[in-house]
């Protein structure tokens, strides 16, 4: 294998465009590549990659590699790992960045084990150690209670990065870069899974990840009826409703509303946490919010440690008056 060099980003495509996680990784990857005076590579896999290669260059990549094949229409572990294994062996990057997404969570560990390489998942910060030149990989551990910094001497150094942990660059359409198709040779018999159906469970209105205001309910809401009241407030704020894990586990709201370590990662301007204690695994999903507001009857609840403003009391008594006043202020 050639000498390892370069920073590679595994790019994801959503609805024909580069996914936001990928522009974030290209932003973070650009910084790492510049620090170590190396190139930033991006690999894009799918049945058709469309305009995504040009977008990747505008977002910071020097070189883009594309793998297109009808067998790559949907993400499947066996086919995607095979393509990535070959690409990493051929291109020998020193660092490989993937997103901590449905795809990255599945692809990265299987790929790392196949390559005999190291992997840190769900990283929040990455930097190059000035002495060892190794990637310092800061990740969330113990349900968000702690952070750990890992390093590894095995190459490539593979990491998955939490969504919204890195900032994309301003796209520069005048930036030049190379686009190289790579040859894909897949044996359909070696793909041992089959996607029968993809079921979208989108809720109406603004997507959680895109909302600037989020009203989130916890265990204390007590049932699906309470979430109707949260919806009323969210609507007034032109925002979205979220939930901590217990309401999802109890079936009060769809699982797709879950904010937290194993749910959605959100970074709104305003995050109103109602009747939720602020377990670390929940905070892992919302600690990037600019302003957290807490309504909880327990003055010792952990959420108050994260909040900018709060009220101690029973949400059932507080929320109607709060929603009414918010509406009045917004109308006036």
């Amino acid at each position: 294998m050639a000498e390892s060099k370069g920073v590679m980003v595994y790019g994801e495509i959503a609805e024909g465009k580069l996914a936001s996680i990928t522009t974030e990784l290209l932003g973070g990857g650009r910084r790492l590549a510049d620090e170590s005076k190396e190139e930033l590579l991006c690999i894009l896999i799918g049945d058709q990659v469309g305009e995504a290669p040009q977008q990747a260059i505008a977002s910071g990549a020097d070189k883009v590699y594309t793998a297109e094949d009808p067998l790559l229409k949907e993400y499947q572990t066996d086919s995607y790992v095979a393509v990535m294994e070959q690409a990493v062996k051929d291109l020998s990057p020193r660092i490989l960045l993937l997103g901590q997404t449905s795809v990255g969570r599945d692809l990265a560990p299987r790929l790392a084990f196949r390559l005999g390489a190291s992997l840190s998942t769900d990283c929040l910060e990455l930097s190059i150690d000035p002495d060892t030149k190794l990637l310092q990989q800061t990740r969330s551990v113990f349900g968000g209670n702690a952070r750990a910094i890992f390093a590894s001497e095995s190459l490539p150094q593979i990491v998955t990065v939490r969504q919204k942990a890195m900032s994309p660059l301003e796209p520069d359409k005048s930036k030049k870069g190379e686009i190289t198709p790579i040859k894909v040779e897949l044996d359909p018999a070696k793909i041992r899974t089959k996607v029968i159906e993809t079921v979208k469970e989108e809720v109406e209105g603004i997507k959680l990840e895109d909302a600037e205001a989020i009203v989130t309910g916890g265990r204390g809401i007590g049932g699906p009826e309470g979430f109707k009241q949260l919806e009323e407030l969210a609507k007034a704020l032109k925002g979205a409703v979220g939930a901590s894990r217990p309401p999802c586990d109890n079936g009060w709201v769809p699982d797709t509303l879950q904010v937290g370590l194993t749910g959605k990662i959100v970074t709104p301007e305003l995050y109103i946490a109602v009747a939720l204690s602020g377990a670390s695994q929940h905070l892992a999903g919302c600690s990037g919010a600019k302003n957290i507001i807490a309504i909880n009857k327990d003055p010792e609840a952990n959420i108050f440690k994260e909040a900018r403003f709060g009220v101690v009391g029973d949400w059932k008594q507080l929320l109607p008056a709060f929603t009414e006043k918010v509406k009045e202020l917004l109308a006036g």
Binding site: S120, Q137, V141, A146, R147, A148, F150, F304, R308
Partner: peptide
């Protein structure tokens, strides 16, 4: 294959203004 360089607790500011 990975070395744990450091384990630490993130600092929480905890400056919540309670409205009474």
């Amino acid at each position: 294959r990975t070395k744990l360089v450091k384990l630490f607790q993130p600092v929480r500011e905890g400056k919540c203004e309670i409205i009474e």
